[in-house]
Write a protein that binds this DNA or RNA. Structure first.
Lengths: 345, 345
DNA sequence: GTGAAAGCGCTAACAA
DNA sequence: TTGTTAGCGCTTTCAC
C-alpha cells in the first residue's frame, strides 16, 4: 500500500538519482556554476524537466541565495507606485529573481515589521519605496542585506538611492504657471517637522523647490504655503483655507495628485470651476491625472525609470557588497493639461 | 583581531547558550509548544530579548512552517484590491503570520510563475485574488498548499472560495435604474468565451445577472450587452458603440468602476452630460466612484469582508488540511450617487 | 519537563 | 570534471 497523503516534493536527491549523478552536479547546473561538463548539464536538465523539479528557496537560502527580492510599498493605494513596480518587475523578468511585495505599511512601526520580515525570510535584496522610516532603521536594513531606497534623498554608505529631482519638479510647475501669467500661486505641502525628514523627504524638497522657484520668478511676495498632508483630505482642507483668504490665489500647486483630488473636490463644492476660477497642478502624473474629464496638469516622475535604476543598483550590490554606495537622480517632466490656464483678468 | 565583515546573525544556538538551556527548549518557546515550564519560558524569552533574536523563516520552513501567507493580486492598479488586502492584513495583524504579495500578474503565465514561486518559498497558505488561471492550475496550487480563492465562483475540493454574489449585484443595479424609470438599460461586459470561465468569472455572472434582472423587470426587449473588456479603454469603446445606436440607451451599467471611467470619458467627449443625458452605474465602489466631482453610483463588494473571510478559511485549513472545502458567498450593496437619476422625458 | 540527535533540501569545501 | 561530506538554522522524534 502506498502511504496516503500528498506525494513528497521532488528534491535535488531525486534529480541526482534519476540523472545518475551527484547532488553537487545538480546544484552546479542549477546555479550555472563552474565545474560541469556540457553532457552532464544536459543530463541533469533532462532529469529536472522529466521530474518537474523546482528548487526549495528556503533551503537554498540557508547556504546561498533565495533568489527573492523584496519591495516595500508604503501605500498600495497610491497610483504612482505601480509604475515603479512595473520598472522593477520588467527589469527582473528575465533573471531568476522573484519579486515579493511587503504591503500595508502605514507608519514607521509597520515599515519596521515588514522590512524585518523580509530580512528574516532571506531576501537577497530589498527595495524600499518612499519609506518614512528613520535613517537609522534604513541603515540597519542596508547593513543586513543589499538595499536600494527609492524616493528619499540623503546619501548613506549602507544603501543606494534613486530619486527624482523634486526641486526641479516644483520649478517646472511654478515656471509653467508663471509663464501662463499667474502670480498668486499657492502650494499645499505635507506637514513635516522632523529635521532629518525635512532634508530627505520628497515632499519637503518640493515645498523648498516651490519657494525657490517663486523667488526666481520675482514672486516672493506671493509665496503661500498651506501645510496639511499628502492625502485627498489634506488637499480638501488646504483648499478650504486658501479659498478663505482675503486675496485668493489664482493657481494651486498640490504636492501630489492625490492632494489635487481633494483640491478639485473643494473647488467644486465652493461652486467654482477649474481652470476658470482656479488653475490646479498636481505631482506624480497618475492615471487619475490623465483621466479625460479631470485632465490634471502634473509632474511625471518616470516611475518606470526609478524602478529600473533601483534594480540595476541592487543587482550590482548583490554582486559586490563592498562597493561604495551610489545615488542616482532622475529628472521629472511636466505634463500640461486642461486644469491649468491663464488667470482670469 | 575580530574577524571583519558583518556580524553573524543571532541563532537559536546563541539564545540557548545565553539562557543555559537546550535549543529544543528555545524552539518550544518560539512555537508555544507543549513541554516547557513557565520558568524556562521566562528565561528563554529574556534571552531572546537581550540578544535581539529573530528566527530564520527559511530554516523554520525546512521542518515546520514559514509563518508567511502569500497573496496573489492580479493587477495592483485596480483600486478595488486594496480593500481586500486591508481585510487580509488586519485579520492577520495579531498573528505571527506575515503577508507577502505576488505582483504584476497580467496573464495566465505570470500567475503561474508567481504562484509557483510562492510554493517554492514555502508559503504556509496562499490567497488568490480574482485569478484568471485555469481550474487545473488552481487545483494544483491548492493541492500543494492550503489555498483560498477570492472572486471566482465554482467549488473545488482542493481550495476554498470567497465570493460576492455578482448576480445579486447586477440585480441591484438594474433594480435601481428600473426604479428610476429607465427601460433602455445597456450593459458593458468583459468578453469571455472559455466555457469554464463563463461559469466561474465574476464578470460573466454580472452579465448573466443583468439579463435575468432585465427579464424580471419585464425589460427583455431592451437587453443590450456590449462585449468589450474590463478596462477604461473597454468602457470607452463600448460607449462609442452604444451612442451610435439608432435608439440610444438612457442608462449604462458598466461591469466595473474602471469601465465606468471609460464611459464617462466617452460621454464627455460626445458633448453629453451625466446623468442628464445618460445615467451611469459602475461596480466595485472604488475611491474613484466616491470622488465628489465624479460621484458614481456603484456596487460595493465589501472587499474587507472578502479578505477577512479568506483569512479565516485559510487559517482553518492550515490547522486542518483534510477538512472539506468551503464556499462563502457575501452579499453586495448598492451605493447610489449622483451619476444616476430618472431618465429625461 | 528536558535535551541529545537526526534530518529538512540545499550549497560549499574539499578530495579524488 | 566529479563526488563525498559537512554544515546552514531550525523542528522533531525519542530517550531520559
Amino acid at each position: 500500500m502506498e502511504p496516503q497523503g500528498r506525494p513528497r516534493r521532488v528534491t535535488i536527491v531525486d534529480v541526482a538519482r534519476h540523472a545518475q549523478v551527484s547532488t553537487t552536479a545538480v546544484s552546479k547546473v542549477l546555479r550555472n556554476a563552474y565545474g560541469a561538463s556540457p553532457e552532464m548539464r544536459a543530463k541533469v536538465r533532462r532529469a529536472i524537466d522529466e521530474l518537474g523539479y523546482r528548487p526549495n528557496a528556503g533551503a537554498r537560502g540557508l547556504r546561498g541565495q533565495t533568489y527573492t527580492i523584496g519591495v516595500m510599498l508604503p501605500d498600495i493605494r497610491n497610483p504612482f507606485f505601480p509604475e515603479i513596480l512595473d520598472g522593477v518587475t520588467t527589469s527582473l523578468a528575465d533573471t531568476e529573481y522573484q519579486v515579493l511585495l511587503g504591503p500595508g505599511c502605514n507608519g514607521e512601526k509597520e515599515e519596521a515589521r515588514v522590512t524585518e520580515a523580509m530580512i528574516d525570510r532571506g531576501m537577497d535584496g530589498i527595495i524600499l519605496v518612499a519609506p518614512i522610516s528613520s535613517r537609522g532603521h534604513m541603515e540597519s536594513v542596508g547593513t543586513a542585506v543589499p538595499t536600494v531606497v527609492i524616493g528619499r534623498h540623503g546619501a548613506s554608505p549602507a544603501y543606494d538611492t534613486v530619486t527624482d529631482d523634486d526641486v526641479e519638479g516644483a520649478a517646472l510647475v511654478v515656471g509653467h504657471l508663471a509663464g501662463l501669467g499667474h502670480r498668486r500661486i499657492a502650494h499645499i505641502e505635507h506637514h513635516e517637522t522632523d529635521p532629518t525628514r525635512l532634508t530627505e523627504m520628497p515632499n519637503a524638497r518640493r515645498a523648498d523647490g516651490y519657494r525657490r522657484a517663486m523667488r526666481n520668478h520675482g514672486l516672493e511676495e506671493w509665496i503661500d504655503v498651506v501645510s496639511t498632508s499628502y492625502t485627498q483630505e489634506g488637499g480638501y482642507r488646504g483648499t478650504k483655507e486658501l479659498l478663505a483668504r482675503p486675496v485668493r490665489p489664482t493657481a494651486v500647486f498640490a504636492g501630489a495628485d492625490i492632494v489635487a483630488m481633494g483640491v478639485l473636490e473643494a473647488v467644486a463644492e465652493a461652486g467654482l470651476s477649474v481652470p476658470g476660477d482656479l488653475s490646479v497642478a498636481g505631482y506624480d502624473n497618475t492615471t487619475f491625472a490623465a483621466f479625460g474629464p479631470i485632465s490634471l496638469t502634473s509632474v511625471d516622475q518616470a516611475g518606470r525609470e526609478l524602478g529600473r535604476n533601483a534594480v540595476r543598483l541592487l543587482l550590482e550590490r548583490i554582486a559586490e557588497r563592498g562597493r561604495p554606495s551610489a545615488q542616482v537622480t532622475l529628472s521629472p517632466t511636466l505634463v500640461p493639461r486642461r486644469s491649468t490656464t491663464r488667470p482670469a483678468k
